[in-house]
Amino acid sequence: MEVRTIKVFTTVDNINLHTQVVDMSMTYGQQFGPTYLDGADVTKIKPHNSHEGKTFYVLPNDDTLRVEAFEYYHTTDPSFLGRYMSALNHTKKWKYPQVNGLTSIKWADNNCYLATALLTLQQIELKFNPPALQDAYYRARAGEAANFCALILAYCNKTVGELGDVRETMSYLFQHANLDSCKRVLNVVCKTCGQQQTTLKGVEAVMYMGTLSYEQFKKGVQIPCTCGKQATKYLVQQESPFVMMSAPPAQYELKHGTFTCASEYTGNYQCGHYKHITSKETLYCIDGALLTKSSEYKGPITDVFYKENSYTTTIK
């Protein structure tokens, strides 16, 4: 009895394709271990004539594949690729409408935090270190965002349907971005203890939790000093293409032309909904596939993004 075979390709990165001759009487799992086709788990399936010449994702289970996976995804987590594939199996079914010149995501599976993050990423200057993220990001900007969303979920250790947080998501993504040249110098002034300067680099240099107003941050924000008295913390120097200011959701007025974009969060910790506000020729609110415009805006804002380049204080 002759062994019926077909020729397929296996890959971990969709760049390096490895030619395989597979036995049609055995499952993919018996031949390769966990195997995925377009995100779908085909591990328990036997090869079919229609699979001839198709590319299958496999887990990096030998040295060659491990090197290829690390170079593309910059992670050695053995569960990463499987999590990416199972997320992709959902995100490829989502709709990605162009809204006001940006790629958004039609609401499904509690994905409003991903839509808000995706919209924000198209408006701030950011370059990702893992080629996987950078490639998928370019495709997302062009309207094909399924891979990018699935990668975000995998890097953030999230599953489809789980509630997510924009600030946490951005923080994970910033860790995989090139923020080497970003720098922030802060000064804390206390009447009792004097003053202390701190220099922050990388992710810490672009994120701040405690106030939404970048102007206020430049002037000074009140913080408790270690001595128990009130101290003032203010920005001395900022070198970065953008800054992200966050605070627990509270009524906040966004003035046209003073910011790049913002995240609105309605609801409580267990259950809520994100919308995205962007400042173009007027203010726009993007909620999944829905767009509304207004000249002014007041609502429960939790993150505001500002364009920056270089700032030095005039406070002496």
Rank of each mutant, 00 (worst) to 15 (best):
Y57V: 10
A145R: 01
A136W: 05
P47E: 02
G299P: 05
Q134C: 04
Y297W: 11
C227I: 03
V206I: 11
G299W: 03
N268H: 03
G202S: 04
S263Y: 08
K307F: 06
M24D: 09
G194Y: 02
K201E: 14
L118H: 02
R66Q: 06
S279M: 05
Q123I: 04
D287W: 00
Y113C: 06
T226V: 15
P241F: 02
Q197D: 11
Y57M: 06
V22Q: 00
T35L: 08
V185Q: 08
T11E: 00
R167I: 01
L283K: 02
F128N: 02
T258K: 02
K219L: 07
T159F: 06
G267Q: 10
N61V: 10
K201P: 06
S263C: 13
T5S: 14
A247W: 09
L290D: 13
Q216D: 13
S213P: 07
K191A: 14
I223S: 15
D180G: 15
I277W: 15
E215H: 08
N178L: 04
S213N: 11
Q122C: 03
A150P: 00
D303Y: 01
Q175W: 02
D135G: 03
T226I: 05
C182Y: 07
V203T: 12
Y36I: 01
I124P: 02
G53C: 09
Y297P: 07
A262S: 03
G164L: 00
S86L: 12
E125D: 00
F70E: 13
V243I: 07
T103A: 03
V206P: 03
A150K: 00
C149V: 15
F174Y: 06
Q123N: 07
G164Y: 03
T260V: 15
S86V: 08
M244H: 12
H176Q: 06
E71V: 08
S213A: 05
V206N: 04
L102W: 07
C261I: 04
D38I: 04
Q251C: 13
M24C: 02
N187G: 10
D38G: 11
V21K: 15
G267C: 13
Y269R: 15
F217M: 07
P300A: 14
T312E: 13
Q31E: 00
Y214N: 06
T75P: 01
E71I: 13
M85L: 14
G210N: 06
P248N: 14
T266Y: 15
L151G: 00
K46P: 12
N111Q: 00
G267F: 11
H74V: 03
K293A: 12
T314Q: 13
N157T: 07
A205V: 02
Q175L: 02
T55N: 12
H273S: 06
V166K: 01
S279I: 00
Q270S: 13
Y138L: 13
D180Y: 06
F128P: 02
M85G: 02
G143R: 00
V185W: 11
K280Y: 02
V236P: 03
T19C: 08
T260C: 14
H256G: 06
T278G: 09
V12M: 15
A145T: 02
E264I: 11
V42F: 10
R83S: 07
A177L: 10
M245R: 05
G220H: 04
P130Q: 03
T55D: 01
R83L: 05
A136S: 08
K201I: 08
G82L: 11
T116Q: 14
E281V: 01
Y113V: 03
D63E: 11
I15H: 15
S181M: 08
A262P: 08
Y36D: 05
F259Q: 07
V189S: 04
T75A: 09
K316E: 14
N111Y: 06
I223A: 13
D13S: 01
C285Y: 07
V206K: 07
K127L: 07
S240Q: 03
Y172V: 05
T75H: 05
G53S: 08
V203S: 12
V243M: 07
A115T: 11
C193K: 04
G272T: 04
S310C: 14
C225Q: 03
Y36T: 03
N61I: 06
T313C: 13
I301S: 05
Q195T: 11
